[in-house]
Design a protein around this nucleic acid. Structure first.
Lengths: 368, 368
DNA sequence: CTGAAAGCGCTTACAG
DNA sequence: CTGAAAGCGCTTACAG
């Protein structure tokens, strides 16, 4: 997608200062080995166990000694060796997060919520994209496990959650993120995609639209299937008279895919839809731009509704009507769930929400 | 910004399966301790050193033994303990990345490039937001150091890069990302913001605009100052006759800030600008939406140009003219620079690039 | 080519 | 309240 830069820097790199010139640094050139507890103990005149105690249970140490140790720590610029700590205690401050695509705002907005929750416990995330590839997913999961992460948040690449199950069976806390799978022994968190899609199409129907297109994501993805089910439900359910449904399956949940899909749709259908439901906001953005290119206005000629409610959705020239997923909250709760050792596992499913903005409206005048 | 969810789940959580029911898992309930090299060695009938050798220098091991060890690894589902490896070898497969805001597409698009490069070497990133707060930055840097990351990519929160210098002085590879600072001993990578701003304003001038507004980000940020300098340069430089420059300083590089800033500008000025340069694309999106709200069209009534060229910029209903920063490449190169142990340190500065799309055009008819 | 042994820097019972 | 010692799971010279 992005062009791959060649090995040499395309910029105008400026050579750095030559090594070896005098008065480089304020002392300390000699790449001194990092000080260890041993050094701190020596300087403070105590044992290493005591140093460890002021680090981990300061209340057990007399304040006089504590102060002395803290002084030594300060003076030596001591930073605890996390690897040793992790090895001994079995605990590292990491949570592994493997999502389909770091570039997708749905996941980055969720990551914001994850990070916020993680920081409360002094933890950080290792973030990785699986690119929806099961092999990459497996490799990343292995790496997470090897590094002794405290838990794993995973958006499964496929419908196969075997890797996650095995991980969980080995004792690793795992939460499936944006997955409707409900394997036993693993918590999961998601939004009800089917309901969301239903709400979207019902909104279009309520506005009087009877020629409706659905620009869906890759049909192999669970999200796509669920949303399609919701669409069909809405259309057939209420026996609202004749509704024409046009389906387009896109290769990706991206704006360019939405753009191209819309063009294809227009080329294919004799009578164009008056309402379009896009399986996510990015697709909607692309579709709207394609619509404008051929001289159709939104919502004057065609109504468009998205899915997700990414940060930008409400702040564009024609603010997007969409189905809101509370990404930030989802991320926050995913972490919460990960550390909820209160026994059983849970499957949380958040309700999506219709957010009506400017991109949808009544069917234009020359209706049937 | 985002609403903070309460502790109880707002969804409709389904209780997980009760613990203790029979035939839960396929064996292996007993939370078996992870197998170690020792277990592998025992099963394969070799020493732990040999196991380590097949892991790290398989060519030194006879293929017969290697096969046996690999079989044992397979059979036990052995996963190497990364903490022990890191402790012993001093190397963890992590790079710490501390950016101002994970929610900002500029950084996430850069993170995509970083990740791509990192993966080539089997490494992953620990990603954290400093929220442009120096204290958070310090805490994160400490944590990175404690965890023995292989290097740190940092977007400095303030103009003060002391923390980064100290880190580097202790031997940690550090690259300043999107920073124009050139401290000795630290490489840096950035785009020439001043030139970018200059290109943007020159584009507006070339189109004939003489009433130009600049919606800038927070004035404390280096990026803002550099871009302002570029704007002023362009305006004063070429003595292109009278140019009226209106400056607005926004509290953040976000769409809502751009929206509000535009409204304020319109309220304040008697004669509105015909061209607006926004210090990033998000601000531009917000500004365009505010413009549309008051019935002004882009570029019919007002031209708008952004900065960054985020993924969405070209895919909106009115594709945004902008100054392109090659985020993905910047990220890729930042990692490259981090591991470039070829001696000195470098300061790479990429040239920004004008991307003309639909949001800018000639001055509208009722010109002066 | 393989094994025995030391040691990375911590933490954690266990004595005192 | 403090110290001595064992050990977490690896890797790495060093012998053989």
């Amino acid at each position: 997608m992005q062009s791959r830069p060649s090995a040499e820097p395309p910029g105008q790199p400026t050579a750095g200062p030559l090594a070896g010139s005098a008065s480089h640094d304020d002392g300390n050139d000699a790449q001194a080995a990092r000080p260890s507890v041993k050094d701190v103990a020596r300087l403070a005149g105590v044992s290493v166990g005591t140093v460890s105690n002021v680090l981990n249970r300061p209340e057990r140490v007399s304040s006089e000694v504590r102060l002395r140790v803290e002084g030594a720590i300060e003076q030596l610029d001591y930073v605890r060796n996390g690897a040793a700590q992790a090895l001994r205690s079995g605990l590292a401050p990491f949570v592994g997060v493997a999502v389909l695509d770091i570039g997708n705002p749905f996941f980055t907005e969720a990551a914001v919520g994850m990070e916020r929750r993680l920081r409360e416990d002094g933890m950080v995330m290792i973030l990785s994209s699986t690119h929806a590839d099961v092999r990459e997913e497996n490799a990343i999961l292995r790496l997470f496990e090897a590094q002794g992460v405290r838990g794993v948040l995973l958006t499964p690449a496929g419908s196969d959650v075997a890797a996650a199950r095995e991980l969980a069976a080995r004792g690793m806390p795992v939460v499936l993120f944006d997955s409707a799978a409900r394997p036993q022994g693993i918590s999961s968190i998601s939004v009800d995609d089917r309901l969301g899609a239903r709400l979207a199409v019902e909104h279009l129907l309520d506005l009087g639209h009877r020629r409706i297109a659905f620009l869906n994501g890759p049909s192999a993805m669970r999200q796509s299937r669920d949303r399609l089910a919701g669409v069909q439900e809405a259309v057939s359910d209420l026996s609202r008279g004749r509704v024409t449904l046009m389906l387009v399956s896109l290769p990706a949940y991206t704006a360019p895919a939405g753009h191209d899909g819309l063009r294809r749709l227009l080329a294919r259908e004799e009578e164009r839809p008056t309402g379009i439901f896009c399986a996510n906001d990015l697709i909607a953005f692309g579709a709207i731009s394609a619509l404008n290119e051929v001289g159709l206005s939104v919502p004057g000629d065609v109504s468009v509704i998205g899915f997700d409610d990414v940060a930008l959705a409400g702040q564009l020239s024609v603010p997007l009507t969409t189905i809101r997923q509370p990404m930030d909250e989802l991320g926050w709760h995913a972490v919460e769930l990960l550390f909820d050792r209160s026994g059983g596992h849970r499957h949380e499913r958040f309700p999506p929400e219709l957010v009506v903005r400017a991109s949808t409206g009544p069917v234009p005048a020359p209706a049937e």
